[in-house]
C-alpha cells in the first residue's frame, strides 16, 4: 500500500458511504471490473458498519497491493472498540451481537479473496481483506510455488 492509499475515518453512517465509494473508485482506477468493484464496495460497507455498531468509530484504509504485474486491493478496517470475544464464532453464519443477522463477517469474507481478523479484547479489531484483479487472480494461482514443479 502506498501512493494510492485512501483513509476514511468512520464516525457516522455517512462515512460508510464515503468509504465504499473510495473503494469502488480505487477499484475502477486499478482496472477491476464493475462487478468486482461492487463486491469490494459491499464488503467495505459491511465492515464499516461493524466499526460503527461495535466500536462507535474507527477507520477504513483502501490501497493497492501486489507488484508491477499483478494488482490487488487491500482494505484495512481498524477500530479501538471492545474487540471480538470469539472470532471463530463471529465468522460463522447467524452469529450476531449488533442486532444484525450475523451475516456481516462471513458474507464479506465470501466477497473477497483473502480475509483476516486480528482482535484483542478491550483494545480493538483490525480486519484486513483483499481481492485480486480478475485477470491477476489466475496468474497468482498459476505462479503458486506448488505448481512450479
Amino acid at each position: 500500500m502506498a501512493d494510492e492509499d485512501v483513509t476514511v475515518l468512520i464516525a457516522t453512517d455517512a462515512d460508510i458511504v464515503v468509504a465504499r465509494g473510495e473503494g469502488r473508485a480505487l477499484a475502477g482506477r486499478l482496472g477491476f471490473s464493475r462487478t468486482d468493484a461492487t463486491l469490494i464496495a459491499t464488503a467495505i460497507s459491511e465492515i464499516g458498519r461493524n466499526i460503527l455498531v461495535h466500536a462507535g468509530a474507527g477507520e477504513v484504509r483502501v490501497g493497492r497491493a501486489g507488484d508491477d504485474h499483478r494488482v490487488a486491493i487491500v482494505v484495512v478496517a481498524r477500530d479501538e472498540g471492545p474487540g471480538i470475544h470469539d472470532v471463530k464464532r463471529a465468522l460463522e453464519e447467524g452469529y450476531a451481537t449488533g442486532g444484525g443477522l450475523g451475516l456481516g463477517l462471513p458474507g464479506s469474507r465470501r466477497l473477497m479473496d483473502e480475509f483476516d481478523i486480528e482482535t484483542k479484547l478491550g483494545h480493538g479489531t483490525t480486519v484486513t481483506m483483499s481481492k485480486w484483479r480478475e485477470r491477476d487472480r489466475h496468474a497468482v494461482v498459476r505462479d503458486a510455488p506448488d505448481r512450479d514443479g
Binding site: T35, T38, L39, T42, E93, L101, L103, P106, G107, L111
Partner: peptide, 14 residues
Amino acid sequence: QPDVAVAMVQFRLN
C-alpha cells in the same frame, strides 16, 4: 443492478 445482484448472491443474503 446486475453487479449488485451478483454481490447479493455471493454474500448469501436471504
